[in-house]
Every structure is written in C-alpha cells, then in structure tokens.
C-alpha cells in the first residue's frame, strides 16, 4: 500500500513538473506576443537613449530581458503600456546598460534650423529633428517628453517617474521651452 502511495506521489510530481513546463511555455508565448504587439514603445525608448544601431539592439534585448524577468509579477492591475514604460525607461535610465555612449557633438550642428511644415515629405526630416532635440535633454526629461508625446496622462507620468503632478507640469513647460529653443 505504501509503495502504491509512493508511486502516486511520484506520478503527481511528474504531472506537476509537466504542467509547470507547459505553463512556462504558454507564458513565454503570451509574453512574446505581448512584446511583439507593443514593440513600438521599446523601439522609441531605444531611439531616444542610444545613437548607434548596435547599441539600440543591445538596449532592446536588455529591455526585453528585464520585462521577461518581471513578467511573472505583472498581475495586470496596471495597464500593460504603463508596466512596459516603467521597465523600459528604468532599464534605459538607471545605467543598467553600458556607460560611455555619448551623443557625438558633431551631430549637433546638423539640425540647427527650423522644423519644416508638416507636409508628408517633411515628416521624416521633422521627426529626425525632434529626435535630435529630445536627445539633448537629460535622461529624465527624455522619459517625460516621450510619455507626453505618446499621450500618457500627466498623472501616469507622475506615477511612472515618482514625482508629483504639479512637478510634471512645471518640468513639461521647461522641456517644451528647451525643445522650442533647440529647434528654432
């Protein structure tokens, strides 16, 4: 009887291990799908925090790894984009990647002229100028303007950064002023 019990216990363990593995596979699939659907957000963070292609790819992978690491603790209480913003920006800002990649100063001269009208031909050029201007801001300011441009409400920006809504308003005014000066 005892032997039968042991066999049953071993069999249950085996089933448990099998179902856990299946769950992990399912989790991985749903995670990959989730990242695939929202990868634009990660690409934007990479564009604003790294200049060359290789560094952007490294940062992209680092963000995906950090997202995967914290995926089991994501309970869906927050919006998926809020969670992704938080981890992507934390990874990009908190120096969890290689230090020392600075924006080359020779790049600065290139866009010292006005943003053109938003005709379709000029959209790409205007985007490049805007991107350049944002890269001149501090890393915290970059995070804030990026969220603002992505229509994230001020209360969510405040929550993600860890400052008050009033502080967000004041800082956003300063950031807008800086961008205005940069692309004038």
């Amino acid at each position: 009887m005892a032997k039968i019990n042991q066999v049953v216990i071993i069999f249950s363990y085996f089933r448990l291990i099998k179902s856990t593995a299946a769950l992990t596979q399912d989790q991985e699939k749903s995670f990959v799908k989730l990242v695939n659907e929202n990868q634009g957000l990660i690409h934007k963070v990479c564009i604003l925090y790294e200049t060359d292609k290789e560094a952007r790819n490294d940062l992209f992978q680092e963000i995906v790894l950090q997202l995967w690491k914290s995926f089991p603790t994501f309970r869906g209480e927050a919006k998926i984009t809020t969670w992704m913003y938080r981890i992507a920006l934390n990874t990009a800002i908190s120096g969890l990647r290689k230090l020392g990649r600075k924006i080359k100063t020779e790049e600065l001269e290139e866009f010292h002229f006005n943003i053109s009208d938003n005709t379709e031909d000029n959209f790409e050029e205007n985007f490049q100028k805007l991107q350049w201007a944002i890269r001149q801001l501090s890393e915290i300011e970059r995070a804030m303007i990026m969220m603002a441009l992505d229509e994230v409400p001020y209360d969510e920006i405040a929550e993600n950064i860890g400052i008050t809504q009033n502080n967000v308003r004041v800082r956003m005014n300063r950031i807008r002023e800086k961008i205005r000066t940069l692309i004038r």
């Binding site: 690491k69 914290s70 994501f74 908190s94 950064i161």
Partner: peptide, 9 residues
Amino acid sequence: DPSDGNIKT
C-alpha cells in the same frame, strides 16, 4: 528588481 517601483524608487 527594476520593476518594483517607479523610476525614482
């Protein structure tokens, strides 16, 4: 764990 709080935390 980088996910356990906002950027400041």
